[in-house]
Design a protein around this nucleic acid. Sequence first.
DNA 1: GGAGATTGTGGGAAATTGTGGGAAATTGAG
DNA 2: CTCAATTTCCCACAATTTCCCACAATCTCC
Lengths: 152, 152
Amino acid sequence: MTAFIGEFNCKLDEKGRLSIPSKLRAQFPEAVGNTLVVNRGFEKCLVLYTKEDWLDETAKLNTVDDFMSPDIRRFKRIFTNGANLVQIDGAQRILVPKKLLEYAELTAEVILVANGNKIEMWDQATYESELNVDSAEMSQLAQMFHQQRNQG
Amino acid sequence: MTAFIGEFNCKLDEKGRLSIPSKLRAQFPEAVGNTLVVNRGFEKCLVLYTKEDWLDETAKLNTVDDFMSPDIRRFKRIFTNGANLVQIDGAQRILVPKKLLEYAELTAEVILVANGNKIEMWDQATYESELNVDSAEMSQLAQMFHQQRNQG
DNA sequence: GGAGATTGTGGGAAATTGTGGGAAATTGAG
DNA sequence: CTCAATTTCCCACAATTTCCCACAATCTCC
C-alpha cells in the first residue's frame, strides 16, 4: 500500500485545473501512469487515490453483500457515484470535475493533505477550521482513538 | 527506534535553510539517507523525524479504518496535519517549508532539541520562555507526570 | 599555538516547477 | 450542419528550488 506524506498549498486556476506539487508526484509509484481517481470525501473535501488503491477500496465495499439491506445498496451507490477518473496533463495538472468542485466548495486556494494511501483536497478555509482544535478536544479525540483501536 | 541526544543552536539563512549540526547528523542511522520529515509540534515549534520513525508513528493511525467515525478521521488529520518531506542538501542543510516557518515563528536563531525519536525546532526566543520555570512549577509538573503515568 | 581538516554560512546561476492563457479539437444542442 | 461551449494540448513567463562553489569559522591534532 502506498503511504503518502505531505501537506501542500496549491491553486486551482479558472479552468478548474489543479497542479500536483512535484514533491507529491514523486511519491506516486511508477505504475500510476497518468491516471488517478477523485471522489467525494466524507467531510467537505475530495479524495484522490491511485487507480490501484481505488480498486482496493471498492473491493472492500464488495465484501458486504448487496442483499443485506437497502442502506447497504444506497451507501455503495453514493460512494461509487462520485468517483471520477482524471488524467494528469503535461504540466502535472488534473482537471477536477465541476460537480466535485462544488461539493467541496473549492475556490482558488486548495490544500492537499496526505492521509495514508489517500490524498485529501480541501478548500483552504474549510481545512483551517477542521484543524482548529483546542487541547481539551484533542485529548478527548486521542482517548477515543485509543479505545476504537483496541476494540478493532 | 532512534533516540537522539543533545541541544543545538543553529541559524536559518534568508532562504529558509537550516544547517544540521554535524554532531546531530552523526546520530542519524545510515538508513536515513537524505530524507527527513518535518511537522508542526503541539506547541509553537516544529518537529523533525527520520522518515522511518514518521512512518512508524503514522502506521499506528492506519490500523484504524476511516469508515469508523468522523472523529477518527478528524483525529488522524489533526495528528498528521503539516507533515512535509525534506531533503538534506550537499551542505547538510534542509529547506524548511515556508508555512511551517511561519507557524513556529522561526527567525534566524533556532534551537534544535533532541526528544526521543523526535527533534524539536524552536525559535530561540520562544524556547527560552518555554523553559522559564521556577522550581515550584517544575515539581508540580513532575507530580502530574507521575500520576498520569500510573493511570496509563 | 599553529596549520590543516572539517563544518557552517552565504550567495550566484542553472534547472525545475507552477501558473496562465491561447488555440486546436471535441462535444453537444438546436 | 452550424455554432457555442467545454476540454485538451501546447507554449511561455515567473517563481522557486536545487546545485554548486567559495569563504569564514571552528575544531583537531601535532
